[in-house]
Simulated assay, not measured.
Amino acid sequence: MERSELVALLSPEGLRLLDSLPEWDSSTDVVRTVAALRKEGHPPELVAAVLSQARLRAKAAGKFGEFANTMLFTEAGLEQATRLRVAALHAGRFAAAGVQHVADLGCGIGGDALAMAALELRVTAADADEVTATLASFNLAPFPRATVLHARAEEIDLDGLADGPADGVYLDPARRSSGHSNTSRLTRPEDYTPSLDFAFGLGDRLPTGVKLGPGFDRELIPAGAEAQWVSVDGALVEMGLWFGALARPGVRRSALLLGKAGSHELSAAADSADAEAGALGAYIYEPDGAVIRARLIGDLARSLDARMLSEGIAYLTADAAHETPFATCFRVLEQLPNDEKKLKAALAARGIGTLEIKKRGIDIDPATLRTRLKLTGSASATIVLTRAAGKHVTLLVERV
C-alpha cells in the first residue's frame, strides 16, 4: 500500500465507501464492481484501495473473526499478524504476571496490542513502517489505553514513555523482507529486525515475550526462557519465548494445541527423552507438530503406552488405541509393497482412486508419487511411508 493510497482510504469518503461495500466473497465480480464505483465518480486510486481492503477483511476473518470488519490491513501485515485467539493468550500472560504497561515493539497491524488493550492493559505499540503504524493506530483507536508510535524498536525509551514506564515488553521481530505485499521469508535469525540480541537483552531486564517462527533454531533458545510452540486446528503457527515473570515456574518446553474442542497443553521442564523403538503394533500415532517441535514425543509415547516406530522418526506405534488430543491415531490395516509398480497394482486391486500420502523419514514427494501411481478407482485411502525398525515400510491405514 502506497502512502497516497492510505491517505485516500483514511479520508471520510474512503471509509464511508469501504463500509458501504457488500461482503467480499469468491463470487464478487471485481470488474463490474470497479466499473460501478468509477461510474459513481470515485477516483481510481480510492476504488483500488477500498476493494483491496474489502478483500483483506474477508481474508482476515479467519484470524480476527468479526473484528476484521472494522480493521484495516496490508497483505504482509495480515499474513504476519497473530490470530486473535492466540493473541488473547499472550495478553493473558501479561495480565497474570501483574504487568500493567506493555511496550509492543514491532506491533504490525496491531493484533497483539488489540488483545492486550481489550484486557485493559496500557499498551504503547510501535512499528518502524509508517503505513503499518498508521493502520495499527486506526485498529487500536477504540482503546483509549493504547498508543501507537512510528518508531524503530531500538529507539523506544521504555522508561520515558508518555504514559509512564513500561513494565513488560512484547516483540514480534520482522522475519520477512520489508514491504506491504510479496515479501519473502528471512531464513537467517541474524537478519531479523530488531535483532535477537536486542530482544533477548530486554528479556534479561523485564518480563518479555518474543514471537518467533515454529522452525526457529532451538540451539538459540536462551536457557532461562520458556519456549512454547502453538498449533491451531492442527497447523503449527508460532513459537513464543517467555522471559522473567511471563515464564511459568518449572516449564521450559510446552506444546499448546488450540482447536474447536478447546485447548490442550503438554509441558515439561526440559526436552523429553525419546521412548525406545519397538515392533510395529496395530496402531500408529502421528504427533501434532507442536509436540514434535517441543521435543515432547517421549512423554507423549509413555502416556499412551506407545513406542517409537523407528529411532529419530516422529511416529509412535502401540498395540491399543488411546484417545489423545496430542496425536492423530491410525489403525494399521495392512502392509503394502514398497516397490512402486507393485504398490500401484495393490492400490488398483482395492479400487483406490483418491489417496492421502503421509510420510516421514522417506525422501519422496507425495504429490509426484500420487501422479505416477495414476489411480482411477472410486475408493479413498491413506498410506504412510516411513521406516519401522530402520526399514522402509508402506502402511495402509485408517483414522481412528
Rank of each mutant, 00 (worst) to 15 (best):
R3T: 15
E5N: 05
P12Y: 07
L15C: 08
D19S: 15
D19L: 08
V31P: 03
V31F: 08
R38I: 06
R38V: 09
K39I: 03
K39V: 03
K39T: 09
H42W: 10
H42G: 07
V47S: 03
V50P: 02
Q53R: 03
Q53Y: 08
R55S: 05
A58N: 11
A60S: 13
A68T: 08
N69F: 03
M71E: 02
M71K: 00
L72H: 02
T74I: 07
A76T: 04
G77L: 00
A81M: 00
L84R: 01
R93P: 00
A95N: 01
A96N: 10
Q100R: 12
Q100Y: 00
H101V: 02
V102M: 03
A103D: 11
L105V: 06
I109S: 00
T124K: 10
A128Y: 06
A133I: 12
T134N: 08
T134R: 15
N139H: 09
T147P: 04
V148Y: 07
L149F: 12
H150N: 14
E154Q: 11
L161M: 14
L161I: 05
P165L: 14
P165E: 13
V169Q: 05
A174M: 14
S184H: 14
D191M: 04
S195N: 02
S195F: 04
D197W: 04
D197L: 03
G201F: 09
G203A: 02
G203L: 05
G203F: 04
D204W: 07
P207W: 05
G209C: 02
G209F: 05
P214C: 10
G215V: 11
E226M: 13
G234D: 08
L236R: 05
W242Y: 15
L246D: 10
P249H: 11
P249Q: 14
A255T: 12
A261F: 10
G262L: 08
S263V: 13
L266I: 03
S272C: 12
S272M: 07
E276Q: 11
A277T: 06
Y283V: 09
I284D: 01
G289E: 04
G289C: 07
L296P: 01
L300E: 06
R302F: 13
S303D: 13
A306D: 07
R307M: 11
S310R: 02
E311P: 01
L316E: 08
A318H: 09
A320F: 14
A327T: 05
E334K: 08
P337C: 11
L343G: 07
K344Q: 15
A348P: 00
A349I: 03
A349F: 00
G353M: 04
L369V: 06
L373T: 06
T376L: 09
G377A: 10
A379Y: 06
L385W: 01
H392S: 13
H392Y: 08
R399V: 15
